[in-house]
Simulated scan of single mutants.
Amino acid sequence: MIEFKLEGEYIPLIQLLKAANLVQTGGEAQIVVTEGEVKYNGTVDYRKRLKVRQGDIVEFRNNKIKVI
């Protein structure tokens, strides 16, 4: 599990995927989100501008990111 230290109130989902080095570009992040490859707190979520906050868990390609 990847632990991501949040600085501020939230991070947009696409930026989180890039910051965790799970995608190379913002464009790639948008594609994987719209294709339903990302789970947010256990549920597939298609919102590209989703605000991920402390305590949330994002899953993508057998990787889990816990936002702390």
Rank of each mutant, 00 (worst) to 15 (best):
M1E: 13
M1H: 06
M1L: 10
I2C: 10
E3V: 14
E3F: 09
F4D: 01
F4G: 03
K5N: 12
K5H: 07
K5G: 08
E7H: 08
E7K: 14
E7G: 12
E7C: 08
G8K: 08
E9W: 12
E9C: 13
E9H: 14
Y10P: 04
Y10K: 10
I11T: 07
I11M: 06
I11E: 02
I11P: 01
P12D: 14
P12V: 12
P12G: 13
L13N: 02
L13E: 02
I14A: 14
I14P: 05
I14F: 08
Q15G: 13
Q15K: 15
Q15N: 15
L16A: 02
L16Y: 05
L16C: 02
L17Y: 04
L17S: 09
L17I: 10
K18E: 10
K18S: 08
A19M: 11
A20L: 05
A20R: 06
A20H: 02
A20V: 09
N21Q: 15
L22G: 06
V23H: 10
V23N: 06
V23Y: 07
Q24V: 12
Q24N: 11
T25E: 08
T25L: 08
T25F: 07
G26D: 02
G26F: 04
G26A: 04
G27T: 12
G27H: 09
G27L: 12
G27V: 08
E28N: 07
A29Y: 00
A29V: 05
A29F: 03
A29R: 00
Q30V: 13
Q30P: 01
I31A: 15
I31Q: 13
I31F: 10
V32M: 10
V33F: 00
T34I: 11
E35L: 06
G36Q: 04
G36I: 00
K39T: 07
N41R: 10
N41C: 12
G42S: 07
T43S: 11
T43M: 07
T43A: 10
V44I: 14
V44A: 07
V44W: 02
V44Y: 13
V44Q: 08
V44M: 03
D45H: 02
Y46L: 11
Y46W: 03
Y46H: 09
R47A: 10
R47I: 12
R47K: 15
R47T: 12
K48M: 11
K48L: 14
R49H: 15
R49P: 05
R49D: 14
R49T: 14
L50I: 05
L50V: 03
L50H: 06
K51A: 07
V52A: 03
V52E: 05
R53M: 13
R53W: 05
Q54H: 15
G55A: 07
G55W: 08
G55H: 09
G55Q: 09
D56A: 08
D56L: 03
D56G: 00
D56F: 00
I57D: 01
I57V: 15
V58Y: 01
V58R: 01
E59R: 06
E59N: 02
F60R: 00
F60T: 04
R61N: 13
R61F: 06
R61G: 06
N62G: 13
N62T: 10
N63A: 03
N63E: 03
N63W: 00
N63T: 09
N63I: 03
N63P: 01
K64Y: 08
K64Q: 13
K64W: 04
K64C: 04
K64T: 09
I65Q: 00
I65F: 00
K66T: 06
I68A: 12
I68Q: 12
